[in-house]
Design a protein around this nucleic acid. Structure first.
Lengths: 342, 342
DNA sequence: AAAAAGACCGAAAAGGCTTTCTGGAACGCT
DNA sequence: AGCGTTCCAGAAAGCCTTTTCGGTCTTTTT
């Protein structure tokens, strides 16, 4: 019953149709359209015109079946709504999109079973490669070593060092954040950050402390771990100001935390950035640009991560697989919340 | 040169391999694995075991080529980073994912040329259908009527009424927002909203005014159009309070605006929700849950839009195409920023 | 003028699978 | 014993394209 008589869609024409209309064989039509040389110019002309008349588009399925390569890649993400998957996805789309590669998007919803299911489905569709995007920077289980296609892990590295993982350089991010604050002349720097269960929180703190140590400084108080929320930013700032009113900069583990921090600073009469400079991480524009003043933040260059992952898939396909963890540099985006001490 | 000698990937086994191992013909193997009836139970057993030993996965390309249907759908979005595409994308992935459908994701970056390019690429991959996701609710040009597959427009409707568009009911959203404020006993309601160039702003305002009129009320001042930013929310609120200090509720055109509104209300000593109730639109959790107090907001049910779009593609595929604009209901998510007047 | 060399086109195979059709064997019946 | 059934398995066609190889036909060379 399914086959109701809809507006009978014009079904795509085949190479055979083109050949018939041009009065040549299928083989010749193929050669003409693909720029092969064994075709007379006049014949080629005729075939091309016929193809246009029929608006012929070669069936990629048939092509792929023959070639053994499909020009498709599977993108396996774990949280679409997360703000990390999306830029990576964009970067990958970007790197692929220019060429002739299409991306299959699958969301495993953080479920290993569903992930396996998707991997199988993608493999049976004969994707040429796989990119696995995590939702946090903590290591995740490998898909295994014996897959028939190259796999690249993005954002969340694989636990297996034999796999290739492209991740943001969180330690470096912490360093350059502190370096920027130091360059602004700040020396009494506190660090308020998120959930210590997150690798990102620990590594950023590690980088920040290292940069401080390199400058012969110690942080104002210990780094304060909590949660990734504005509420925590407010609470931690209240405590911080009570105990260390001399602070002249707060490095926040995320932009959300930074907004909470700035709210309390303002309420308590501290000027940003004149009295206290504030920085965040992630450079989430909806938060940074709406803050008062706009928030300086460390951008994780996630699109770059996505692009690099896509390029790594290409490289592996071309016979140069890599392995290990490849951190990508981050960058400070300077806005109004940090400025030199005057 | 590309073919460097990598770790020679195990190449997938074919039905022929399975048949040989099981000692039957390819045809029999196919029938055995697909549950066709003309196979002796014992033979089927043997084939299945062989398939498992070889971890055989049927090549979907070959299958699709034969069947004329690929079980793939193209998802054409215009702004991946926008917060509207993503939930829709999730809804669609959701509706499809359960079954045997895979989604090709393409981002046209708002460029018509690139969009055409993607459409062609998707068609040559023989997708079974297309979902076009816009980045705002304003009508967009149609892809045309003579495509070989069904097309469904999501969020942004097509300009051509012969197409099928699934959109959030913005007018209805305005109505239910005001209804909720009325239910809270508010009667002096102002509306501060975004860019009047956006359909969403105009329609939400229209719905809000209609609901007020139904209750025999008029808004406090005219709706104030501006931009979708916290800054505008702050500025508009300052003007509003100067001119109409009696206001007891502010309906904001977006959650961002609402946050700006709430900031100024608090700074001026108005309590939310006791003195003034505040509502937003979009239910963007990062903003609503971090607000003080958490912000009541109208959720556009975008995942529902995505699901409905996916189902519409199925329906069209099954021979029941629809057309016109199908608005999907929205819903109020009540949080701390609205409460009954006491 | 005959032979060699191109130039151009088409037949056919391949890629992996599904499906229809044919045919052989085993069975029950008159 | 002969006939018609039923049950299973295999051969082959088909999906659409690319590519190899062989074959015509025209042109050049000796």
């Amino acid at each position: 019953m399914a086959q109701a008589t809809g507006p009978s869609r014009p079904q795509p024409s085949t190479l055979g149709d083109v050949a018939r209309l041009a009065g040549v064989s299928i083989a010749t039509a193929s050669k003409a359209l693909n720029g092969r040389s064994q075709v007379r110019a006049e014949t080629r002309e005729r075939v091309i015109e016929a193809a246009e008349r029929l608006s012929f588009r070669p069936n990629q399925l048939a092509r792929s079946l023959l070639a053994g390569r499909t020009g498709t890649v599977g993108l396996l993400t774990s949280d679409l709504e997360g703000r990390f998957s999306i830029p990576i996805l964009m970067g990958a789309e970007d790197a692929f999109g220019a060429g002739e590669v299409a991306v299959f998007l699958c969301d495993a919803r953080g479920d290993a079973i569903r992930e396996q299911h998707h991997v199988r489905a993608l493999l049976s569709r004969r994707v040429d490669g796989l990119i696995v995007v995590g939702s946090r920077t903590d290591p995740r289980p490998s898909l295994g070593r014996d897959l028939p296609v190259p796999v690249v892990y993005a954002y969340a590295p694989s636990e297996d060092p034999a796999d290739l993982s492209i991740v943001p350089d969180s330690v470096g991010a912490g360093r350059i954040a502190v370096d920027h604050l130091l360059a602004c002349g700040r020396t009494r720097i506190a660090h308020i950050t998120g959930d210590p269960g997150y690798c990102a929180a620990r590594e950023r703190a590690e980088g920040a402390l290292a940069a401080l140590a390199d400058a012969g400084l110690a942080p104002v108080g210990e780094p304060r771990f909590g949660s990734w929320s504005e509420g925590w930013g407010r609470a931690a700032t209240a405590m911080l100001l009570d105990r260390h009113p001399e602070v002249d900069a707060v490095l926040c583990g995320s932009d959300q935390i930074a907004r909470g921090v700035m709210d309390v600073l303002r309420e308590r009469g501290h000027r940003v950035p004149e009295d206290v400079a504030v920085m965040g991480f992630d450079n989430w524009k909806i938060l940074t640009s709406a803050a008062r003043p706009p928030l300086t933040s460390v951008d994780m260059n996630l699109e770059q991560v996505g692009r690099a992952a896509a390029q790594a898939v290409f490289a592996a396909l071309a016979g140069s697989p890599r392995s290990g963890i490849e951190p990508q540099g981050c960058r400070v985006v300077i806005r109004g919340s940090t400025a030199p001490l005057s």
